[in-house]
Structures are given as C-alpha cells and as structure tokens.
C-alpha cells in the first residue's frame, strides 16, 4: 500500500509569484524523506502540492507532473478530494477538531467514508491511538473533547487521525516544532515505526531530527528573497550529512549559512 511519488519539472506559483522552481525528485516507498532548508525556500509549498492542498489558496497553481505510482494526481479526471483521501497530512500546529471527542477525531476520516459499524470504529480508534503512542494516555477520556489535550498529545492525536484511514503516504510539515523534547522523541519513535508501512515525507528545521529519522534528505534553497526556491540536491541522508555534493548544502549543514 505504501506508494512512490515522482515529481517531474514541478513549478509552483502563488498567483504571479513563482515560489518554487523546477523540482525533480522521487519519494521512495516505505521510507522517510526529509526536506530541509532555510525559511521561505518553499518546503511547505512543495509538501502541500503532494496532496493538492496547495490549490486551496486563491490563485495558487502547479505546473509539471506529480506521479503517484505512475499516475498524475493533477490529471483532469482526478479529484483532489480523492487524492487527499490517499495521502494523509499532519500539520505544524496540532489541529484536532476542537469540539469533537478524542474518539470522533480519530475516526473522523473513516466516518467520512461511510463506516458506521461501531465495533469496527472502536477497533480502528484503538489501533490508531496505539499506533500514535497515545492510547495509554487517553484511553480513559475518549469522550472528552480533542481540544482538551496537551499540545504534544494533540499532535499525536492528529497523527492517529491521519493513519486511521490507512493512507498510502503521510506528509508531515514540521510536526514537532510546537512540541517539547519528550513529545518530539515520542513522535520520532513513531515515525520510525510508521515507515514500515507508510511512505513518509517530513519537513523539518531540525537537522538532527532529519539525520535521526530520515532515509533520504532533500535540501532546498533560494538565491535571494523574491526569487523562487529550488531543490539543491537530494540523496541518502548519510551522504547529505557527511559528504554532500553541493557546496551550498555543506554550508547549510555545517551552520556556515549566510
């Protein structure tokens, strides 16, 4: 079920603003791909094109091809809703539905798909919460509103919500940036677990995190503000962090970045 994504000559725009230029890369199934780079270089933008969330912004558009197991998700006949059903997403700020209970949050996606069987829903709820390392903490308050959990718990709740629908790919945009170190470790462990079954793409500002969790790392950069961002290189994480091909990557990783 884990799927491969290929980006071919992808250009991304916000209205007239050319945000990201000419990206070519492959996301490998059952592995973790990390995007790193300075702020504003377009990491989130690229990530959001992978499940067609980008087009929700007025005037935003994408050129080039994004292939999910060989099929262009931007094809005319393909429905954005169906794409998002297949490719789950976890956001930088935890965003559970505040008025829904913990249980309803987790199974929200399944309910959308018309699963009504209470037993099945409860099973998935427990499995997903266990998968997100949250079950022990919330099993006694599944009926309390999701907005009442701590930040780290909310983020793991959002991960549980994303994996409950068994997506083929999981996108994570700085999932730990609002969390304390302990919750961060919990989520990193979780990512290591999840990659056995899912394709994962993660954006992070934390170089150690990228080094710890990812199998391959893409470095994005931009020449100057106002210029489009671009992919400098993408390679095995070990190689990027020990012996990158490009000088810019080397500078960024060693902190000699201007």
């Amino acid at each position: 079920m884990a799927k491969r994504i290929d980006l071919k000559d992808v250009d991304i725009y916000y209205g007239a603003f050319h945000a990201v230029q000419n990206v070519n890369l492959t996301v490998i199934p059952r592995s973790v791909t990390a995007f790193i780079g300075p702020s504003g270089c377009g990491k989130s933008t690229v990530l959001r094109t992978l499940n067609r969330m980008h087009e929700e912004i007025a005037g935003a558009r994408v050129e080039g091809e994004i292939l999910l197991d060989g099929e262009n998700i931007y094809d005319r006949g393909t429905d954005a809703v169906a794409v998002r059903r297949t490719i789950g997403m976890v956001f930088q700020m935890p965003n559970p539905f505040p008025t829904m209970s913990v249980r309803d949050n987790v199974v929200a996606g399944l309910k959308l798909q018309g699963v009504r069987d209470k037993k099945k829903l409860d099973e998935v709820c427990e499995a997903s919460l266990r998968g997100a390392n949250l079950w022990k903490e919330v099993k006694d308050r599944l009926d309390k509103p999701g907005g009442g959990l701590s930040g780290g718990q909310q983020q793991r709740l959002c991960i549980a919500r994303a994996i409950a629908v068994q997506p083929d790919v999981l996108l994570m945009d700085e999932p730990c940036s609002a969390l304390d170190p302990i919750s961060t470790l919990a989520i990193e462990d979780l990512i290591a677990d999840l990659k056995k079954e899912y394709t994962i793409v993660i954006v992070t500002h934390n170089m150690q995190q990228a080094a710890r969790v990812s199998d391959q790392t893409g470095f994005f950069n931009l020449e100057a503000t106002g210029k489009p961002g671009h992919l400098v290189e993408i390679d095995d994480t070990e190689k990027i962090f020990s012996n990158p091909t490009q000088q810019a990557t080397e500078d960024y990783i060693s902190g000699r970045f201007g």
């Binding site: 809703v81 998002r84 965003n95 539905f97 959308l112």
Partner: peptide, 22 residues
C-alpha cells in the same frame, strides 16, 4: 480547522459539516 478536514479528504460539504458549522 478547514485544512484539517480537507487533508482527511473531506468534500466541500463535509468540510462545512466538520469545521464551518461547529
């Protein structure tokens, strides 16, 4: 909240049900 619903693959009407109306 709207993005959370959309990222789950909610249709326009479902986004309204999950985010806008509550």
């Amino acid at each position: 909240q709207i993005e959370a619903a959309k990222a789950l693959g909610a249709t326009r009407w479902e986004v309204i049900r999950m985010a806008t109306l509550p």
